[in-house]
Nucleic acid binder design. Sequence first.
DNA 1: ATGAGTGCAAAGTGTTTGCAACTAT
DNA 2: ATAGTTGCAAACACTTTGCACTCAT
Lengths: 158, 158
Amino acid sequence: MAPTPTHESTPITAVTAEDQALAELRRLGQRVTAPRRAVIAVLAATDEHLSAAQVAERAQALGADLHLASVYRALETLIRLRLVVHTHLAGGSTTYHLTTDSSPHRHVHAQCVGCGAVVDVPEEWLSAVSRRMARELDFELAPHHAALSGRCARCTAR
Amino acid sequence: MAPTPTHESTPITAVTAEDQALAELRRLGQRVTAPRRAVIAVLAATDEHLSAAQVAERAQALGADLHLASVYRALETLIRLRLVVHTHLAGGSTTYHLTTDSSPHRHVHAQCVGCGAVVDVPEEWLSAVSRRMARELDFELAPHHAALSGRCARCTAR
DNA sequence: ATGAGTGCAAAGTGTTTGCAACTAT
DNA sequence: ATAGTTGCAAACACTTTGCACTCAT
């Protein structure tokens, strides 16, 4: 009772982020399982940052029936292999996205405490702070690993 | 079965942070209850950033027997009144400390992903980013509200 | 064939909430 | 007197884990 509908209608054009990730998985000697496939497919299909629950949800929408625990485990693996990066939001939740080496997600996130919206901030904006923390505090900042917090325009207004 | 041991051996010297906070509470027309007293006492006794559980723990050590839920509710109230500020750490936990207007805790926190240690970062270091985000993204950064993340010297070494 | 990976249910954090009893004002 | 607070237990959101079973290699 687990028919794996693997409709891989690979576009003629270029190598998709999905294919790249799968190839990388294999290259690293890791097993290509249904949950991993599904998680990669979901993440490759968007440039949003998704929570584990959202990944599970969208995977189901794509016809893959995977357990939330498996999503966490797949994400854990993909993170270890550097195929996925994650960002902690101030609320306590975590969001995940693919590491697309074409356009490396070199940006920092800032989340509005009012509405939860996440704004992307160019990583360079943090580089001065980053250097200073390294030099004066001996602290290696990982700017993308935790989202900044604040208020977006709309929520400041009201 | 709830004897409230209120030994208020007020020092002759100056107004303590604790007294200030209690006075402020009253001034704002809020009730001065045992849990609020205890939470304030604990926070006033340290300059560390404590989790709600740590506050409860230390309050018990001080002889106050308060429920964890009450700690959360007291903290919530004190935050609303601006007597306490809180910081979200990347793990999902939250730390609290008194707003001492004498030495305003205008610093940002950076937590080591390796050992969990929290480093203080002067808030000014973030002011350029802060201004830029306000100007170019219409986003009002609250630098102290979420801890930065990275690696401390020791954890980078090993 | 076999060990890595899965589904499930259960436990583990950290935090919030409904409600009856209590208490600061 | 009474509205605001508390303690408790139960629910919550998010994440991890033990275990028997499955499946990618």
